[in-house]
Design a protein around this nucleic acid. Structure first.
Lengths: 325, 325
DNA sequence: CTGAAAGCGCTAACAA
DNA sequence: TTGTTAGCGCTTTCAG
């Protein structure tokens, strides 16, 4: 059977609150008593009931983490780092996948709330739930993107995209394309960065991905469809809004004997396992630093839930590899 | 503020237990009342307090998942599948990483217990905690390995390793090596399978990995050390106990102008992202089927915690790729 | 320094 | 069908 403090108290011949005090390191306990209690605990297989602690103290030491795509190695790395950060701070994380689905995303948040999480780390999908999210009375920190009116931590997309544009132009490319959801901020920043290099981006060079269908499989389908409609591309370089996309693009074009980087230069984003393995140039994200920062921010909000929000943008770095040289 | 059933009750002018009944779909509630309550709930931002439910009903709908290495893409895929399975069954998962450390592993289990999980899915590291694990009075299902006296689900290692041995021998290899922890059951099965092919495995062809130091980094170090001590290998093929190892081996040997598969054939294990991307032959694990089976087994144990244990071994499949042909 | 008592939000037995 | 009551295991006053 599961032992409770009451059982320990009986065995140690003290009161139940004394057991609580000993466990929580309250200094105002007689050493002898404390020793006696500790001994009983060690000899039994007692563990505190965190559900009861949560109920009583309305602090769960649980944080909810919701990402848009668990199958993306990049988010996996994020999760891994989060688990580590959380543990070090005495928290546990409970993970959810919104799968680029706003309804699921909101359900996930509701579930977190129901679990009495002390805070939420969220990689949002679009702006669908933004207004509702603002009403949530548990601290939320947005990661991997910056959102106004929220605490958020991310690598600076604008800066990252600029690095890509500068790099491609410096390699002599003029006709440059883009793969990604057409409504992504990366595209806007990319156009601007090219413009600053004296290049006008032609919208015909967009290979569009349907927003919300951003699993590797969906991306594959999208690119395949585009290729079936267009026999040639009028471009010598392409920027892919993430690494998964870059990889799918390379796979599909190589089937058509279109090679990287000989025929077309490719640059990805995230510098995940994929780009490292496949030698794809990519924008590096300092994941550990990002999650540590996000977690610290969340903890400070948990302690002091003020209304002012902070946005932290980390500097990106372009890692140049074979795919664009 | 956070609303409770009491608040809803007051607003709907009913008693608090009635609210509970409505929320839990108890049919013995007057339709009119139920509607009134539902309306109030919908207009508010009420969510049930699962900590209270857990405390009261001693059911948390939480399962603990502990793996040995979150940085291994294979376990990431396992986690991803688990999250999916759990959600479908109305459970949440709480994730831990034991990092090949028995002490951490036990701490993790204790933490799960403290969180009142209904069950535990465990990828154990060695046998260090086996005896203690047997005493745990919450259902445990072991995955990715088979353990006697435990409910467990895994691909059949013996069968998988046999496929590797048969394949390599059929390709004409005689001098075959192994990389992995020397105490891993895969090695034992591998020797036996080679023996059945008329080949005596020579222990000199083991590149040993220190048990417990099985992160990509540690593996890299281990292999590097071996290479620095041995100027040549006396083998034409090598079996790596997992994909991470296969990749590290290929990376290091390619630096020494030793190429796969021209100079040496390589076969991995897990068929994770790594082997797919890097065209490494590997033993495929049906992860979704495995996790679904494990989860189903766990749920059935949660419902009926009998003492008999079940072990389920799923058939492996060899995926032959460039690295061994 | 220690114990008695109250109550966190919920479910379930019981009474009405 | 509904409300009253008790209690899950814990923390936190408050007396002593």
């Amino acid at each position: 059977m599961k032992l409770t403090m009451k059982d320990i108290a009986r065995l140690a011949n003290v009161s139940q609150p004394t057991v609580s005090r000993v466990i929580n390191g309250n200094p105002n306990v007689d050493k002898t008593l404390a020793k006696r209690v500790m001994k009983v605990i060690e000899e039994s297989n007692f563990t505190v009931n965190k559900a009861a602690q949560t109920l009583k103290s309305s602090q769960s030491f649980l944080v909810g983490v919701c990402v848009t795509d668990l199958s993306n190695p990049y988010f996996m790395e994020v999760i891994q780092a989060m688990e580590q950060d959380a543990r070090e701070a005495g928290y546990n994380i409970i993970i959810h996948n919104s799968m680029h689905n706003p309804i699921k995303e909101w359900e996930n948040v509701q579930n977190f709330l129901s679990r009495q999480v002390d805070g939420i780390l969220l990689v949002p999908f679009g702006d669908y739930n933004i207004e509702k999210l603002k009403q949530v009375n548990v601290p939320i920190v947005i990661t991997t993107q910056i959102k106004e009116d929220f605490d958020s931590v991310s690598v600076c997309h604008k800066e990252g995209v600029k690095l890509v544009a500068d790099h491609l132009v410096s390699q002599g490319h003029q006709k440059i394309g883009y793969i990604g959801p057409p409504n992504d901020e990366k595209l806007i920043f990319f156009k601007k960065a090219l413009y600053n290099n004296g290049i006008h981006f032609n919208d015909k060079r967009i290979i569009p991905l349907t927003p919300g269908q951003e699993s590797a499989f969906d991306i594959h389908q999208n690119i395949e469809y585009y290729l079936s409609e267009h026999s040639t591309f009028d471009m010598s370089a392409i920027f892919c809004y993430n690494d998964v996309t870059a990889l799918e693009f390379m796979r599909l074009t190589s089937q058509e004997n279109y090679h990287v980087p000989e025929n077309i230069a490719v640059v990805g984003f995230d510098d995940s396992l994929i780009s490292k393995i496949f030698e794809i140039s990519s924008i590096h994200q300092p994941i550990e630093e990002m999650t540590k920062t996000a977690f610290k921010l969340l903890l400070s909000r948990i302690k002091d839930n003020s209304k002012e929000t902070t946005s932290i943008e980390l500097p990106p770095k372009l890692i140049v590899r074979k795919s664009s040289t």
